[in-house]
């Protein structure tokens, strides 16, 4: 009897957790700023920890968020061991979210690109991922979870263990930083030509 109970739990693990392997791998790759070996170790550690802790997972809740949380915690522990301190952010409040949302890099791009939406077509995937990998971790993880993996604010809040207001603030600031970096890169590499400059 005990055997069949264990079998059900572990089979549940394989069916519930393994389908999220690619999402965890992509998250690990971006957390480790594209370092393949580190990302692979993170993924393996995540799945082994999840397998050992499967009894603590409630079926019917969000398995992807649970795995991404384990992955992130594993990454943060590694950073601590390597003596890298977590980035300290300025104070974050819900109040600044609206003004952050309004300050896109749009106005700068608008001066030099027409139509503005075509701006993103000039980049290679590799260039965007490099720019993303250069963001400080608190912004990088929010942008990756939202813009690459398509998680909702609530799911991101669950993974990052933050209030949704802080998630929005990090996401909007992260997007602005990423767009600024891409804008500078585009100028430096001649993808766009500054107008009105002689």
């Amino acid at each position: 009897m005990r055997g069949s109970e264990i079998r059900v739990q572990k089979v549940g693990f394989v069916e519930e957790a393994i389908p999220h392997l690619d999402a965890v791998y992509r998250f690990a790759l971006r957390l480790s700023r594209g370092h393949e070996a580190e990302a692979q170790d993170l993924v393996q550690d995540t799945f082994l920890r999840a397998h050992r802790g499967w009894e603590g997972f409630r079926l019917g809740t969000n398995c992807r968020s649970w795995l991404l949380t384990i992955c992130r915690n594993s990454f943060l522990r590694g950073e601590e061991r390597r003596g890298r301190r977590a980035e300290i952010l300025e104070s974050e409040t819900d109040a600044d979210v609206e003004s952050l949302a309004a300050t896109a890099v749009f106005s700068e791009v608008r001066e030099n690109v027409d139509p503005e939406a075509a701006f993103f077509d000039s980049f290679l995937d590799r260039e965007v991922l490099n720019a993303l990998d250069a963001l400080p971790t608190p912004f990088r993880e929010a942008v990756v979870l939202s813009d690459l993996e398509g998680l909702s604010y609530l799911e991101i809040a669950e993974v990052l263990e933050l209030p949704t207001g802080t998630v929005k603030s990090r996401l909007f600031r992260g997007r602005r930083l990423l767009q600024q970096a891409l804008y500078r890169y585009a100028l430096d590499n001649g993808y766009i030509t500054p107008k009105d400059r002689t």
């Binding site: 896109a104 749009f106 791009v109 608008r110 139509p115 503005e116 939406a117 075509a118 701006f119 993103f120």
Partner: peptide
């Protein structure tokens, strides 16, 4: 245009 940029 700003919506279009952010959507892109």
């Amino acid at each position: 245009p700003q919506y279009d940029f952010q959507r892109a």
